[in-house]
């Protein structure tokens, strides 16, 4: 896979770089305005921290893509690991769950990404939802602690599905054997890039629209920062962005718009669901790994729901 020979991919990367530079400039302007007392210090600081994190994330992502499939698979495997680590932190596990968790982290997680590496689609799809689903309660039974048994088992299964299974759909895009009428050499890499860009931009745009126009609370109990204006504005502008970027993908304009809309909606659902889990556990952010963003799971929650939907859309409609 020679990524640099694919002009459309290079163009996509340049667009993302331009967006980041724009973000940095806006951050600087906000910083100056804050020092003049025209806007809140915390807003400017938070914005700048977010942009810095984005630079980091884009750099890591770019390096992963450049090293070919293995780099991306490793990147998402590490992301899964960190996300699961945060998820396990907020759910109350008991002493008897220890060995089960050891299996989840050190055996099932690598196995899932190994299936992607060798391109074993059948096992990739079934490993977590079927085999791990059966394995987790079995291993918990062997530990012999019946207290809150179903609850504990279900929570571990939830963590596995969200943090490993759903996220692993993103690198699996690289293994899709599509029959697109497309001239580029790295069409799969562009599919992945498109997904990540739309999901993350949808998040960012929802945040921005919410900050600028937000008045009516959307889900006050789940996530007090979400507003109707932010949601509608963010999803619509992400859809428009997807339409505009569809030139760089094998999709037609209408396909690009439709897929982006679904991806943005699924992303929102993921974000809201993870927020609900956090509220339930009395935590605001999953971790402090990425400055301004909370933890790894706070950043991947949208991708978690969007990646499987996107993958199966493409597989259903574009793979013969």
């Amino acid at each position: 896979m020679n990524l640099l020979h694919d002009r459309k991919l290079v163009a996509l990367v340049l667009i993302v770089l331009a967006l980041l530079i724009l973000g940095t400039i806006v951050g600087r302007v906000l910083g100056i305005r804050a020092s003049q007392g025209k806007c809140q210090d915390s807003l400017a600081a938070n914005f700048q921290a977010r942009v810095r994190s984005w630079w980091m994330m884009v750099a890591v992502f770019a390096v992963a893509m450049l090293t070919g499939g293995i780099g991306s698979i490793l990147l998402f495997a590490i992301s899964s690991f960190l996300a699961l680590r945060e998820f396990i932190c907020i759910i109350p596990t008991r002493r008897a769950d220890h060995r089960t968790l050891v299996w989840c982290f050190w055996v099932l997680l690598p196995l899932q990404y190994w299936c992607i590496y060798i391109g074993w689609y059948g096992m990739f799809v079934l490993l977590i939802p079927l085999y791990a689903f059966l394995f987790v309660p079995m291993r918990n039974v062997l530990a012999g602690d019946c207290e809150h048994f179903l609850e504990r088992t279900a929570k571990i299964q939830w963590g596995m599905t969200c943090c490993i299974y759903c996220i692993s759909y993103a690198p699996m895009l690289l293994k899709l054997d599509c029959n697109f009428d497309d001239d580029g050499s790295a069409v799969n890499a562009r599919l992945l890039f498109f997904l990540v860009t739309i999901v993350e931009m949808s998040d960012v745009l929802q945040y921005c629209w919410g900050k600028i126009l937000g008045k009516h609370k959307l889900l006050p109990k789940v996530s007090p920062n979400k507003t109707v204006e932010g949601f509608v504005g963010g999803v619509l502008s992400a859809t428009v962005l997807g339409g505009a970027l569809s030139y760089f993908t094998p999709f037609t304009l209408w396909q690009g718009l439709g897929i982006s809309l679904l991806v943005a909606l699924a992303g929102f659902a993921g974000d809201a669901t993870m927020s609900a889990i956090k509220r339930d556990s009395g935590v605001k952010d999953y971790g402090t790994m990425l400055a301004g963003h909370g933890g790894m799971l706070d950043r991947l929650d949208s991708l978690c729901f969007a990646a499987p939907v996107y993958f199966h859309l493409i597989r259903y409609f574009f793979v013969s």
Partner: peptide, 9 residues
């Protein structure tokens, strides 16, 4: 009493 860690924050 355990040898392998289960990651956590």
């Amino acid at each position: 009493g355990e040898f392998l860690p289960a990651p956590n924050m």
